[in-house]
Write a protein that binds this DNA or RNA. Structure first.
Lengths: 123, 123
DNA sequence: CTCATTTCTTACTTTTTTGTAAGTACTTAA
DNA sequence: TTAAGTACTTACAAAAAAGTAAGAAATGAG
């Protein structure tokens, strides 16, 4: 669980309050979030099981946890249909959708960096 | 220390190899990196002690660690002058400079998000 | 000889994140 | 009545990130 008054937590809080960049990174920075956001960007609405299949290495626990965080931050919408077996669909909220150009930018830069750094030295 | 074959490390590696976004985030995602990059973007060349003062809450250990990672990833250049007391200057590399528009984008979105989410609900 | 200055190191602890394994709830269909 | 399907939970363990405190090197100034 998260402590509220650890130095670490306080530092994060302060950074988030003063640095837009740090703030954004704290929202999209979990291990599986880039993957999740990317799928939702590409596919629109997706069921839980679709996401699960699309991201092969993630566990249920982690997938749920990351979705919940995105939901709490209002970037992703969770829609439950009262059926059996259950159906739950996820999609970007309007706010989440405003990330699209930024996410694309981040992705493009990453691909570019990979190319460049593969040319220069062989990491 | 970092284990090389933990599930976690392998997951990260795989993500970095396939998802530009995840890759970028792994480069700029440390607790103090956004701050460091931001200062270097604004100020150009900075001494260690200037960075230290500009980022009040960081410890020596963390500041050095984050700078080393940025240096290893070729985003930041470290220049040592053979003087006593020592002088060490940091600045963005050319590759690091290519991040500028992206970092600006990330920062802008963060500021915008903060505004929006403060209007809607009072988080 | 001692001190100040600057840029780090090192050893260690705490906190946070991620992973593993197993189980739950609900209802329809066999 | 038993199994199947879906979307989770829970308890626990491992790994990674961040923080704390102290010290080290090099040298010129006093």
């Amino acid at each position: 669980m998260r402590k509220k008054n650890s130095t670490n937590a306080l530092n994060e809080k302060k950074i988030n309050a003063t640095c837009g960049m740090g703030f954004t990174l704290s929202l999209i920075g979990g291990r599986w979030k880039s993957n999740i956001l990317w799928r939702l960007m590409e596919n629109g609405t997706m069921r839980y099981s679709q996401l699960r299949k699309a991201i092969p290495d993630v566990s249920d626990r982690m997938l749920v946890a990351q979705l919940r965080e995105l939901e709490n931050d209002q970037l992703v919408k969770r829609m439950v249909y009262p059926e059996v077996p259950p159906r739950v669909e996820y999609e970007l909220t309007d706010l989440g959708s405003t990330m699209r150009p930024m996410l694309q930018h981040i992705s493009d830069w990453g691909e570019q960096y990979r190319k460049v750094s593969e040319e220069t030295n062989h990491e």
